[in-house]
Design a protein around this nucleic acid. Structure first.
Lengths: 141, 141
DNA sequence: TAAATTTGCTTGCAAATTGCAAGTGTAAAT
DNA sequence: ATTTACACTTGCAATTTGCAAGCAAATTTA
């Protein structure tokens, strides 16, 4: 068993910001969520390939953590039994507004890549619409 | 000089989520921001007292980090030269929508305290209004 | 005005978390 | 039947966080 799991058993305080950070406030968890949410990545290999600098043991333990926190679930992959299809739960999908605001904030103050720019453009045009349509897509998985 | 400073020199990738996490994606930075943003805390002592479990060296280095990232600035305290008045910059104030969404998300899935509940109530009633009026208050400091 | 207290830190060391490189078992492709 | 793909695990090093103590300058108290 992997020993890199973060202590997410107890909340540090009853503050929602603190609680949120307890769940996904590390360097990698939210990037996995982002990959699932915006870029249709759903397998260990896709995550590993997308976040090239993540250590494989950390990726593995984050997937366990996120599943235990109820943000993602493991499903059978339609194409192969060797693969696992990771899927966002409703609780995970509900992080979309946070991801959206993070995109808007960072885009205002930093250079961002082309894929993020596309998302940013849609968010600026119609944030609520983007969240709604994206939510619908994710629910159908 | 304190050696606990996080390496925020280079972005891991041009992704806005990754960039955001590089700036404030640790266990404490955003709690300092929250204290300034929602609860009118502005000094080292107020932060230390509010986040009782934060180590003093970590608090000190986070304040340095946040200043270097341009989210906060050091000002003279009106009451005393022994105190330092930490103030949110525009870049810091612009994190308010993220803080707001985090409150809404955590309140949906976890128990939160009374002060957070008040904020939550206002956000549910009129999110845009809350952000606007709070922004105005913070700018006047 | 001298002593005690408040304030915002620093220092040294221990504990926890993350990162790296290599390896393992099962499923699928050749 | 053998090689490759996939999802991990393992052991150890490096980085980050946490704890306890200490310290200088400003302020309050006696």
């Amino acid at each position: 068993m992997n020993k890199n799991t973060i202590n997410r058993g107890v909340q540090r305080s009853p503050c929602p910001i603190s609680t949120s950070l307890d769940i996904w406030g590390d360097k990698w968890s939210l990037l996995i969520i982002r990959d699932m949410m915006l870029f249709n990545k759903n397998t260990y290999g896709e995550f590993s390939n997308s976040m090239k600098k993540i250590a494989t043991n950390i990726l593995a333990s984050r997937l366990v953590d996120l599943e235990q926190s109820g943000l993602i679930s493991k499903e059978e992959h339609p194409d192969s039994k060797a693969k696992i299809f990771y899927k966002l739960t409703q609780k995970g999908i509900d992080l979309l507004p946070i991801i959206a605001e993070m995109n808007l904030w960072a885009a205002k103050y930093y250079e961002i890549g082309p894929k993020a720019k596309e998302v940013n453009k849609m968010l600026k045009k119609d944030k609520a619409g983007f969240i709604k349509s994206r939510t619908a897509v994710l629910k159908k998985l």
